[in-house]
């Protein structure tokens, strides 16, 4: 993980996750963010590690994976630029449940979970705003996962 020169404020402002997010809240979150980048193939996080951050992806794709035997992880979903990665920071015991691996050179912002948790404990309005956005992301992922479970291409045209 390396620091880059991109301005966190700029990145937050342009990320769809914070679209229409009140200015005062975005500013209060600035101190929790730091720019990050990952090389293609680099691990963003690993199953079982402490989940201290979530990531706003600006460039490149990240694969959410399950480690499997033989060194061949199974890819479950792809997180694309404009989306967010990770919500385990929000839910105790704050442990990553999956691996995340950069599929391309990835750039984004890591938001420090401990910093965020401190803020939402005292400002429930901010907590609500943030949770609404995470709920939407989770609902989208859940819907897509459900469709994946349907094996929708399996039925052929005999």
């Amino acid at each position: 993980m390396t620091q880059t020169q991109g301005s966190v404020a700029e990145l937050l402002k342009n990320h769809p996750f914070f679209e229409d997010f009140a200015e005062k809240y975005r500013e209060s979150l600035l101190e929790c963010g730091r720019p990050v980048s990952f090389k293609k193939g680099e691990e963003v996080f690993l199953t079982g590690e402490q989940a201290n951050d979530f990531f706003l992806i600006n460039k490149g794709r990240v694969a959410i994976q399950v480690p499997a035997s033989g060194g061949n992880p199974i890819s479950i979903q792809t997180v694309r630029p404009g989306s967010v990665l990770g919500w385990s920071w929000l839910i105790p015991p704050h442990i990553w449940r999956f691996d995340a691996t950069a599929l391309d050179d990835v750039e984004g912002v890591a938001m420090d979970g401990r910093c965020l948790r401190g803020k939402v404990e005292v400002d429930h309005e901010l907590a609500y705003e943030l949770l609404q956005r995470f709920t939407r992301v989770m609902a989208d992922r859940l819907e897509n996962t459900r469709i994946q479970l349907l094996d929708i291409y399996g039925r052929g045209n005999e």
Partner: peptide, 13 residues
């Protein structure tokens, strides 16, 4: 829908 190993394309519906 699912990829095992060296797939670097997208996963998802």
């Amino acid at each position: 829908d699912a990829a095992i190993g060296a797939w670097d394309g997208d996963v998802g519906v």
